[in-house]
Design a protein around this nucleic acid. Sequence first.
RNA 1: GGGGCAGUAGGGUAGCCAGGUCAUCCUCGUGGCUUUGGGAGCCAUGGACCCCAGUUCGAAUCUGGGCUGCCCCA
Length: 473
Amino acid sequence: MKSVLDRNNFSEWYNEILKRAEILDVRYPVKGVYVWYPYGLKLRNLIYGILRALMDEEHEEVLFPLLIRRDELLKEKEHIKGFEEEVFWVTHGGTTELDVPLALRPTSETAMYPIFKVWIRSHRDLPIRVYQIVNTFRYETKHTRPLIRLREITSFKEAHTAHASRVEAEEQITKAIAIYRNFFDRLAIPYVITKRPEWDKFPGAEYTIAFDTLMPDGRTMQIATLHMLGENFAHTFDIRYEAEDGSSKFVNQTCYGISERCVAAVIAVHGDDHGLVLPPPVAPIQAVIVPIIFTSGADKRAEEVKEACNALYHELKGAGIRVFLDDSPDRPGAKYYYWEMKGVPLRIELGPRDLANDSCTFVRRDNFVKWRVPLTTAVPELIKTLDDIQYSLHARAREKLKIRVSDAAELKNAIDGIVALPLCDRERCGKELEETIGASVLGEVLYGAPRTFGKECVICAREAKDVLVARTY
RNA sequence: GGGGCAGUAGGGUAGCCAGGUCAUCCUCGUGGCUUUGGGAGCCAUGGACCCCAGUUCGAAUCUGGGCUGCCCCA
């Protein structure tokens, strides 16, 4: 019978679903890079469409080159320290060795900021808020994993801003957090927001804020980061502006980004043993119509069913629904399994029995509830149902991301999921804790977690903050 | 960062130690007939030894290198 899609073995489930639901083909013969199938790309584009719309409200899209000069990349010392072991280099043009080696961008700060210097002259040029959706390259030495740990991130959605003052830069971080929250809410992906510890911030940043979600195996995955750069890069790249009073000042900068991990999150968080479960806003097909007909013989009823399916298809399509009419010769049961694998939120069955009642049958993908709907109210019922599904998915996912509050006494237990506890901000304590419990410190809680038990660091008993820990991807 | 295992048709496996004749299964492809409200059945047929080199009369099998994947530990 149908082979096992067991969510309890998440690793296996994940690889299997990417293949069977035709998201990614992992057989491309270069480590850490993968091929997008048409269906996977449609899903991806719908997800990005949401983010793009949100970003476009206050950012402008730009496109910077993939290649970065070696000397530019190496300018920011802290920054390059964080990346130097992960950079791919272009060293030759044909058989000629290049005078200046060129890096494939691991991220675009050092590509953009020399140009920011040229663009920014006066306070009137500020603020600058731009973003781009591009591929970035990192020579990952750990085990690569489709959509999660890649050597080519095919769609890094990175924003970069420059401001006249630090206050404005801080405000931009706040705004960006709101944008990202909005984005993940639309994907029905729950998250926690933390300020990363000093030792785990973005190289070159003053501080880093991150979104993490919970995967089915109890580990967290970072799905978005925001970095307060302050004047660090401005000094390195000499990005100054003339203020109203005629003085020359350095800009304050921020940058923030989301990779295709957001696609991985949609797949991993909502999926089940039957396959993908896609939130309606990003489902390439929101409803599939399965005609129940006898293909042999020119049964009169078969013709009527076909006509009814066609009429329904056009009505739904006209209402703006992404609908697909599966009139292939397969048996209905085979179609059910197929579309369940693909994560289509709603299935509409229409056969002679339904037609006799001027109705059709709705089946929800998220909970398999099945009911009969009059054809005359199919459109409003469908729209309402898609909303319900979205709401249920979000509620279900939130329910799974429950945070356990723990104190020092409980730390001997294996960490499963996200645990909140009091910890001071010294690196020594953080590292000691990580070693003791075999999990990572996500950082100080900014959103999504309850208060912890105490104010004393679980390691050294000094004054502490509320901190989240988890095993991570 | 350290260690281990593996790669045979679209997918899953056997064969490898001990070199030769050999596959097999499937919800795979193709054609045909019969079926049809939850993965239909029968018949016919197609298709592979990860890549490069070496050893050899002869390599899926042995040796070396490469590429790719998976697991465990830090």
